[in-house]
Design a binder for these strands. Sequence first.
DNA 1: GATGAATGAGGCTTCATTCAT
DNA 2: GATGAATGAAGCCTCATTCAT
Lengths: 202, 202, 202, 202
Amino acid sequence: MRRKKPGTGPAAGSGTTGNREKILETALRLFTTRGFFGTPTSLISKEAGVATGTLFFYFPTKEELIDTLYRRIKGEAAQAMCRGIGDEMAVKEKLRRIGFNAVEWGVENPEKLTFMEQFAHSPFVSTSAHEEGISHFLFLEEIVKDGIRDGTIRNTDPALLLCLMASALSGLIGQASAVRDPSGRGEMIREGLEFIFRGMMP
Amino acid sequence: MRRKKPGTGPAAGSGTTGNREKILETALRLFTTRGFFGTPTSLISKEAGVATGTLFFYFPTKEELIDTLYRRIKGEAAQAMCRGIGDEMAVKEKLRRIGFNAVEWGVENPEKLTFMEQFAHSPFVSTSAHEEGISHFLFLEEIVKDGIRDGTIRNTDPALLLCLMASALSGLIGQASAVRDPSGRGEMIREGLEFIFRGMMP
Amino acid sequence: MRRKKPGTGPAAGSGTTGNREKILETALRLFTTRGFFGTPTSLISKEAGVATGTLFFYFPTKEELIDTLYRRIKGEAAQAMCRGIGDEMAVKEKLRRIGFNAVEWGVENPEKLTFMEQFAHSPFVSTSAHEEGISHFLFLEEIVKDGIRDGTIRNTDPALLLCLMASALSGLIGQASAVRDPSGRGEMIREGLEFIFRGMMP
Amino acid sequence: MRRKKPGTGPAAGSGTTGNREKILETALRLFTTRGFFGTPTSLISKEAGVATGTLFFYFPTKEELIDTLYRRIKGEAAQAMCRGIGDEMAVKEKLRRIGFNAVEWGVENPEKLTFMEQFAHSPFVSTSAHEEGISHFLFLEEIVKDGIRDGTIRNTDPALLLCLMASALSGLIGQASAVRDPSGRGEMIREGLEFIFRGMMP
DNA sequence: GATGAATGAGGCTTCATTCAT
DNA sequence: GATGAATGAAGCCTCATTCAT
């Protein structure tokens, strides 16, 4: 019934742009500010500067889009936390480093952090993506267990300890992000980590 | 002569006015499981066993409904935390009591807790409701300040301390809820609170 | 995010109209002229004079709409074919009557006939609707078997006979409908039925 | 320096130009199974193993593609029906031969038959293609007229006779195709043609 | 107070078609 | 000739809200 017309072809000046990336960046920003259902795909494509169809060319579903984002960010976060960790380091040292890494990454990537927290238990993210995400953080449990074995950490359920540490870190990042003055922020981070380590030690 | 018969009047056995409450209960359950955009008002009214129009009679807007829920639950939570607190008690004692109260309430009201956490920063809840919610917890800051003054608590930014405590409590509740055995759960709660108090003490 | 507005309520002068019926009528007309995919639900509702949402209030799916139509028309057709048939009649008489009934109904309900033919093997109509439709015509097989038993009909696979009869009738209706002059049409019908009965007799 | 590499040129082992044919074959299969609107051009090109653009190189429009298919198949069918017909043959003999040819072709080319029936009255096929298709079958009318003149065929409207014959043949093919056993099928075909010829004779 | 049919903007997704490479 | 990313109108369906009864 329709009679010719659609498909204007590649946008006039579209050059060699990374449309896929533009979409992911835009989606991250919008999802964190407005939530999953709060951000229409049409808004994402508009703000990314592409046509509606383009979004669905790269991500067949809105869910697929958020999934990709989730996997990517979770992996990035895990990698950031490991920075500078060596096998030879003492447990205490490792934890301190991880704590700093976590806070630093969180403060510098507030959108990504919010995204992770917001969709950590979300049904919009596929189970497989969730599992993949969790797997990246399994190494933490090993460290805690090592700590308990060598007496650096109070003998307690490692899962509980990890969970308390994670929640406290998340709270700390939130507070620290609100402080714009670098030295003040540094001080706050030190205090926050102190809180956490005292809680874990014997 | 008329063919249709809309408005059959009050449902036969509808009591006198459980409707408002039924709607609130149902909304709580659905909002926590499916999110704000994920739960149509039509679903709420259906599951509550009332007509679509009835919901809008009590709550002119979906936002108004969630607002009411938020205010009510936040107030309830604050009240629960204060249970058994007396002016004469020592700061340490107060905090211990508050901690227990919080965990107990959270474990026993998982839906309400989830709701609070989920909509704590949500744009669907009005600013005024958020402010009202916060006001209920201001008394905590006073207690922490008292503790710092009398040396019970390490001298640190009270806001940070409060935030760390809150996040850790939230994490603890999550873990504790997963334990079905009462004595195991009790042990876990004790350990979790220990973590928090060690973190705060000098 | 949206802030009030939708739902103008029942259309000002909508009286007590049978919207459901209007939708079904319109859908029949459009489906036969333009096919299933060729008729947007938006067109149906527009031509029926209702809002898009109204259509989906009565028929949750486009498929459900066509299904309802199919069941209804198939039943109507079956009933029309039986008109005036009595148990005491001879097979020959029954068949003649059925033939006339079929052609008459087909000529007078061209849209419904087209619809039936068009969607007889269509995947858009549910299997259950197809089965229901077939069940209405099972009585024909009995008549043919009776005819074979008593020698009125040539001893041949009844299914084949039925199928040939049905196809020929369908062709006949098509030709007859094109003739506007009643007596010419009558003559044609008589000839067409003659064709069919000669083919079946021993 | 460029990042993307669209248009990799002819696929490595793509022969010289089976593409046009591959597209036609695939389109036939898909159109008959899924209908016109039910088969996206993207699916056709994918299943044919060519790029989306390639399809539009050969057929500027989806309509043009179906048109080509229609003309080709209709011509093929007409040719098949004439096989073995000679001017010297008697009308009766000609008709018998045509009947056999038709059934044989239909049974052996179910997809093409379905296609023809499905799009015989379809608006997606251009009027000119329809006219061309009809013209191929005009010779049939002559044969029937000859038969009426020489008394082989009952004196009846030739158009009606043709139409009845065509519909019955179509029904017969459907039934016969369902029979897998060759001798059983042969028997059925004989009976079906018998039905048709009895109907036509004086 | 209660009902539920009616509304229509808006959401997600599909798809014929184009064109730079 | 061939490729496939890009386009955007259009399709199906959802849902907050209204109002006559």
